[in-house]
Amino acid sequence: MSEAIYCFDTATVRFAIYPEGPAGERVIVEIAEDPLRDLFGAEGGGDTLVEAYKTHAAIIDACALERHHEAPHRPVLLETRDFEALEHFAGS
Rank of each mutant, 00 (worst) to 15 (best):
S2M: 05
S2G: 04
E3N: 14
A4R: 13
A4L: 01
A4Q: 06
I5Y: 11
Y6T: 02
A11L: 05
T12G: 12
T12V: 10
V13W: 03
V13I: 04
R14T: 08
I17D: 04
I17P: 04
Y18E: 05
E20V: 03
E20R: 15
G21A: 09
G21K: 15
P22N: 05
A23P: 00
G24S: 06
E25A: 08
R26L: 08
E30A: 09
E30H: 13
I31S: 04
A32N: 07
A32V: 11
A32L: 00
D34A: 09
D34N: 11
R37T: 13
D38I: 02
F40T: 06
F40R: 12
F40N: 10
G41V: 03
G41H: 08
V50I: 12
E51T: 10
E51Y: 09
K54L: 08
K54D: 07
A58F: 13
A58Q: 12
I60A: 03
I60G: 03
I60W: 06
A62P: 00
A62V: 02
A64Q: 09
A64K: 10
A64I: 02
L65N: 11
E66A: 12
R67G: 01
R67P: 01
H68L: 01
H69D: 10
E70A: 13
A71C: 01
P72M: 08
H73L: 05
R74K: 15
R74L: 03
P75L: 05
V76T: 09
L78F: 03
E79Y: 09
R81K: 14
R81C: 04
R81W: 06
D82E: 00
D82W: 03
F83K: 13
F83E: 01
E84R: 15
L86D: 02
E87D: 07
E87R: 15
H88M: 11
A90R: 15
G91P: 04
G91E: 07
G91C: 01
